[in-house]
Nucleic acid binder design. Structure first.
Lengths: 211, 211
DNA sequence: CGGATTTTGTTCTCGCGTTCACAAACTCCT
DNA sequence: AGGAGTTTGTGAACGCGAGAACAAAATCCG
């Protein structure tokens, strides 16, 4: 987030910023920002602030964005299509080296200039490109099988868009993104707003139940 | 998450489950699960566990999934297309009532059976359907403007996929999903794995810097 | 019917992340 | 050169969520 905010500042022509400026741009508290940055080192100057470009480089180096990361996407449905075309990946150092799908109907189709290949090509592709990061955009039922195959080929980081809990061995990182759960959380707050304004007793709320 | 896990259990024909079973299915600690459920009320039976269907209904009612939520999606690029087609929304009570885009080139195009309309139709659509939830899938530069217009029309919950920090008045909820930040977090851990295994001194790590 | 067993609901404790607050350090201006 | 004004880096306090642990309650079985 800080890196993104710094990039935005740099594009506005700003060379230097205070922790307060950057905190506002990133949407966090300035004390938290300073503490976070202090874990990387002392890259600011007291009385002045931070040099935007210098800090940007330091953060980019620390989080590994300076390198190029080959990525494999499995499951080329609606979401897989969107991910393959998502420009934010390439611009942040991620290169989609292969699109895989178990369904032969989509094989050889070109998505974002990359041909869709059979899922069984996974091992060869991972070995060829040294892929460490895999993206799962399959239906929930297929996710665990895909994850197992990924782990077996040596992938150690998985981004999971399937609504399923994945079991993986120690040493493998999994991050889960669930689009509809985000909407559900908003709907929950919406419902509470409506009931709090109207008839608070209509639905037993969390606050009441917790007392 | 619990609701999803319960649905999966129900589809497996399981009528009753313990907090431990459900915790495993949801990928959390069983004590945490019991505490979470206790905020809704005492829906379990000691010595037996939870009735899957009953608990499922209670959670669905509490989080508002039993109602139908009309949703507007603004920004019909790659991501907007995928979101409009995403089946997980409809199956969880969300109905996409309109797709809006500022670009006239995509107007009247049919996406998932819904015609893309001009962004200026926002007010009319929100009023007509009583929309409370908006989804922003535009580029970052357009996001704040879209959010302002949404708030002005009475939308009080926003799901933001644009990589930008949104400023909204009190009473409006914003949730942010950033696809590439998730990949960046994985890449960071990948980098640390590589350096910890090889030459730990090559990159100053957080642990060392924190000491 | 009563003890053994199972499982929930809840209390207590621990650890962690966030925020406050302030000393150290740097710049600017006279 | 020196004081006034800024801003960072960090120690201390706070709040909160997670996990361990246990009492209460229900079932099972002899």
């Amino acid at each position: 987030m800080y890196l993104r905010a710094l990039t935005a500042l740099a594009e506005s022509g700003i060379r230097t910023c205070s922790s307060e400026d950057l905190a506002v741009a990133a949407g966090v508290n300035s004390a938290k920002l300073r503490k976070d940055l202090s874990y990387l080192g002392s890259y600011g100057t007291r009385g002045v602030g931070y040099d935007v470009d210098y800090l940007r480089y330091q953060i980019a180096r620390e989080i590994g964005v300076t390198q190029d990361w080959p990525v494999v996407i499995v499951g080329i449905g609606n979401l897989g299509h969107a991910l393959a075309n998502y420009s934010g990946f390439r611009s942040r150092g991620f290169r989609v080296v292969a699109l895989l799908d178990a369904d032969p109907h989509v094989h050889d189709e070109l998505v974002a200039g990359v041909a869709v290949r059979p899922f069984d090509d996974l091992e060869a592709i991972v070995a060829e490109h040294g892929v460490a990061i895999g993206v799962i955009a399959t239906p929930a039922v297929a996710a665990q099988n895909v994850a197992d195959r990924m782990v077996a080929t040596g992938i150690t980081s998985i981004l999971n868009f399937a609504p399923a809990v994945l079991a993986v061995p120690d040493g493998v990182d999994v991050r889960k993104v669930d689009l509809s759960i985000e909407l559900q959380i908003l709907a929950y707050h919406e419902q509470r707003k409506a009931h709090d304004a109207g008839d608070p007793a209509a639905v037993p709320g969390v606050e009441e139940a917790a007392l």
